[in-house]
Computed example of a mutant assay.
Amino acid sequence: MADVWDAHWYGSTKTLDVHVAALRRKLAAAGATPEITTLRGYAYRLESPADA
């Protein structure tokens, strides 16, 4: 989160979750094949079906 928001940003920790969920919905609505995979407690990863 510090790479996207200021390291001193104070707010809900769910902000990133909400943004990723919206991006997942938009990818699905567009029929895109890449998926956003959650690496719990670490990061998110954009994967194509060939990566899985």
Rank of each mutant, 00 (worst) to 15 (best):
T37I: 13
E47F: 08
L16P: 03
V20E: 00
L39K: 05
R40E: 15
I36V: 04
I36E: 03
T37E: 12
G31E: 02
P34N: 03
A22C: 07
L39H: 12
R24E: 08
L23Q: 07
D17E: 13
T38G: 01
H8R: 15
D6H: 15
S48P: 06
S48R: 11
A52Y: 02
Y42D: 13
V18P: 00
A52L: 05
E47K: 10
D51N: 08
H8K: 15
T13E: 11
E35V: 04
R45W: 11
R25T: 00
L16S: 10
A2F: 09
A32L: 08
A2E: 02
G31R: 01
A50T: 15
V18Q: 12
Y44N: 05
A50N: 15
T38Y: 11
G41L: 03
A29Y: 07
E47S: 12
A28M: 07
R45Y: 08
A30T: 00
T38Q: 07
A52M: 02
H8M: 06
G41Q: 07
S12I: 11
W5P: 04
L23S: 03
T33F: 05
A50W: 15
V4F: 07
P49K: 02
Y42I: 09
A32N: 08
K14G: 09
G31V: 00
W9Q: 08
V18G: 02
R25M: 12
V20A: 10
I36L: 11
A29H: 13
A21L: 00
A28V: 00
V4Y: 13
V20G: 04
R24C: 05
T33A: 14
L16E: 11
P34F: 00
L27K: 02
E35C: 00
A2I: 10
H8P: 03
P34A: 01
T13S: 11
A2P: 04
W5A: 07
T13Q: 14
W5E: 08
V4M: 04
V4I: 14
A21S: 06
T33R: 10
Y44D: 01
P49R: 05
A32W: 09
T33Y: 12
A21F: 10
G31D: 06
H8C: 04
Y42A: 13
V20H: 00
G31A: 10
R45I: 05
D17K: 13
P49G: 06
A32F: 13
V20N: 04
V20R: 01
V20Y: 08
G41S: 10
R40K: 12
A21N: 11
H19C: 14
L46K: 01
D6Y: 10
R24W: 06
D17T: 09
G41P: 04
A32V: 01
A2W: 06
